[in-house]
């Protein structure tokens, strides 16, 4: 192989790589939930007082329009590790809330959270841009995160063919100016059998082949607690409502139910609002077995407003 042919090959490969990288970052995934929300957050006149972090449960379940001074950052599959990354990143930009709301769910400690990050299932471009190698060196001892970071940073399009077809310039969700994503689906309109099978499918997606308790998530939950303490941020936890069908499946599985007692021990001293079974008899306020729709979000947010009001009487120093 002559030198000029090698040069031709190298130039061709590098050129195509730069082109694909640009296209993937700036066109194909430019409309991801995280980036929509960040852009909405940057447009806020003043830094919101209450920040809502977490996964799809708070994402669909808390409407900041009904909770004055709040902003909903939560996005699909965002776990305690990513919550910590975001909080640290925003604090480094001299932005911080008075209150941070986090979910405390049965799947919050699941090993699925880490698997989704390392499996490049989330918005790699967004997250790898907020994580530095020195951050990884300081915060984890797991070398697979370094590998993840290198491929996410330099080859974000690798293995992401499905985005070409499914996310061409549009995201599945649209966030409003306060980060809320409305879902109008009505789980109650399904037949009983359909509801049950839908619940089974959701339950499987959360716990099938994933251990329910992952020390990695516990580690980052603790780090978030420590960071909030040092920054004077009040942490509040919420258990979001699920349907009766989903809850029944959880109760049949001792390993899953055990998560609550583990979380309770880790969250000792922190305020927890548990709404898990509060709306189980109202399938019409759910969009699927474990997510509320817009109607449900209004009810959940009202309860959170009441809860936060009641907390004002309690000093944050208890944490």
């Amino acid at each position: 192989m002559k030198t000029n042919r090698i040069l031709f090959f190298v130039v061709l490969v590098v050129g195509l790589h730069v082109m694909f990288n640009f296209w993937y970052r700036n066109v194909l995934t430019a409309d991801s939930i995280s980036r929509q929300k960040e852009s909405a957050f940057e447009k806020q006149k003043s830094t919101p007082r209450i920040w809502i972090f977490g996964d799809s449960h708070p994402m669909l379940g808390i409407n900041p329009a009904l909770l004055p001074g709040s902003f909903n950052f939560a996005g699909t599959s965002e776990n305690y590790f990513l919550n910590y990354v975001r909080l640290k990143s925003l604090i480094s930009q001299n932005k911080k809330p008075e209150i941070l709301v986090l979910p405390a769910e049965l799947h919050s400690l699941s090993a699925q959270g880490k698997a989704l990050v390392l499996g490049h299932e989330l918005d790699d471009v967004y997250w790898s841009d907020r994580i530095s190698l020195s951050f990884l060196n300081e915060e984890t001892t797991d070398p697979s995160f370094t590998r993840w970071w290198i491929s996410a940073r330099f080859f974000p399009y690798a293995g992401q063919f499905y985005r070409i077809f499914s996310q061409w310039k549009k995201s599945e969700y649209k966030a409003d100016s306060l980060g809320f994503i409305a879902s109008e689906n009505n789980f109650g309109s399904l037949k009983e059998g359909e509801r049950r099978s839908s619940a089974e499918s959701r339950f499987q997606s959360h716990f099938h082949s994933y251990p329910a308790i992952d020390t990695f998530q516990i580690q980052f939950l603790r780090k978030t607690m420590a960071l909030c303490k040092s920054e004077g941020i009040r942490l509040v936890f919420v258990r979001f409502p699920v349907t009766r069908e989903y809850w029944n499946l959880c109760q049949e599985n001792p390993a899953v139910v055990k998560v609550d007692s583990v979380l309770d021990s880790k969250l000792k001293g922190y305020p927890i609002l548990s709404l898990r079974y509060s709306f189980a008899g109202s399938p019409e306020i759910f969009s699927d077995p474990d997510h509320v729709n817009t109607k449900g979000a209004a009810q959940v947010t009202t309860r959170i407003v009441q809860f936060l009001d009641s907390l004002r009487k309690t000093p944050a120093s208890a944490q």
Binding site: L16, H17, F20, H120, S151, F155, Y157, A158, G159, F161
Partner: peptide, 10 residues
């Protein structure tokens, strides 16, 4: 190479 990169299972 790019077909493998886009469509590969990494």
């Amino acid at each position: 190479l790019f077909v493998v990169l886009w469509f590969g299972h990494f």
